[in-house]
């Protein structure tokens, strides 16, 4: 493992190389990140500017099948930025392993709060929470307009399969791979198969659009981060995903991410996108979203159990799967078993 001084030195050298001038790192601190990623806030000073940047780096052992590479994430963030999506402006990416050991990307820091539990509860964000549902709808419409043809590397439903059918295939494959025989998950999968919506449009999806991946300031939604799960899929899937109970951070009565109601969000999305959204299809995707997250939680635990990534955090996720299982069952009951 490298020493912090060495880490700092290497980042300084890298930034001096890409900016072509003297760079002084005034501070370097870790930010809360995902289980597979390492995120740092870097405050730099150069003769020209004084600015704050964020560095995101893969962890050496991260094994998320569906996650994108850093250069792909960089390309997507750049396109989203150009298209007027509120995304931190990406600056550089580096895939040279000799710099920091793993590929990384650097983007501009945006001031605000991203930790879900704080977004749903901080008193100073009350006005932001009031604005968020509409802002989320407008932003999501912009994201879904990104041209998929620009990103031939994105995961997508295989030919002849709708996004929902693709999700069923993937979920079943994951259960087999994990060797899991859980009747609630088997039942959820069966219910989904028997209630598949007709057709379904295929658009660019952020892939993890929810509270927790938003930088929220007092004005509301200031930045959308974590583009590593971008893919092509059904727009209704991404209207349902931010409604999952697990992204409500304890404010469970507020269906949209613990900050508001679902309806203003969907209405804003309809206005901005020109699409008419069938609420029943969004309900379907919320059930499927819980099923997938329940299976993903088991897959994360499996990284600890079988794939050599010792982590109490990953291990504990296995026991959280039941939360999504119960939520899925309750939502199915609302639709009629």
């Amino acid at each position: 493992m490298r020493t912090p001084t060495d880490f700092r030195q290497r980042i300084t050298e890298y930034l001096e190389a890409v900016t072509g001038g003297v760079v002084e790192i005034k501070s370097l601190q870790p930010l809360a990140g995902g289980a597979s990623r390492d995120t740092w806030l870097i405050h730099i000073h150069t003769p020209a500017v004084d600015e704050r940047l964020v560095l995101r780096r893969d962890l050496p052992t991260s094994i998320m099948d569906s996650a994108l590479e850093r250069d792909q994430e960089f390309a997507i963030m750049s396109a989203a930025h150009v298209a007027g999506v509120r995304v931190p402006q990406p600056r550089w990416f580096c895939s040279e392993p000799h710099i920091l050991g793993e590929p990384f990307l650097i983007y501009n820091y945006i001031e605000g709060v991203s930790i879900g539990a704080e977004v749903v509860s901080l008193p100073e964000l009350a006005e932001a929470r009031r604005r968020l549902p509409e802002q989320m709808g407008e932003q999501l419409a912009r994201i879904h307009r990104l041209n998929p043809a620009l990103f031939d590397f994105l995961p997508r439903p295989r030919p002849g399969y709708s996004p929902a059918q693709e999700a069923v295939l993937q979920t079943r494959a994951a259960l087999i791979r994990l060797g899991v025989h859980n009747p609630a998950l088997a039942f959820g999968l069966r219910w989904i198969e028997r209630h598949l919506p007709e057709g379904g449009e295929v658009v660019f999806l952020h892939g993890d659009f929810r509270v927790g991946n938003f930088i929220v300031s007092e004005e509301g939604l200031s930045g959308i981060v974590d583009w590593e799960f971008s893919r092509l899929g059904d727009p209704c899937e991404e209207l349902a995903w931010p409604c999952l109970r697990d992204w409500r951070y304890g404010s469970g009565h507020l269906r949209l991410g613990g900050i508001g109601e679902r309806e203003p969000f969907i209405r804003a999305y309809e206005r901005a996108s020109g699409r008419r959204i069938n609420r029943k299809v969004v309900d379907f995707w919320e059930i499927l979203g819980n099923l997938r997250w329940a299976v993903t939680a088991l897959a994360q635990a499996n990284r600890h159990l079988a794939l050599g990534e010792t982590s109490v955090e990953l291990a504990s996720l296995g026991r959280r799967s039941a939360e999504m299982q119960l939520e899925m069952l309750r939502l199915i009951a609302e639709q009629g078993v």
Binding site: H253, R320, A322, L326, A333
Partner: peptide, 30 residues
Amino acid sequence: KAALFEHLLATAVEQLQVANPRFLQILALE
């Protein structure tokens, strides 16, 4: 189908009595 559903619900609740009883309390409150 209904009998199965009751079994699944009970099993999920038992899991959470161990894994996260607070989750169940919050649901009941809601």
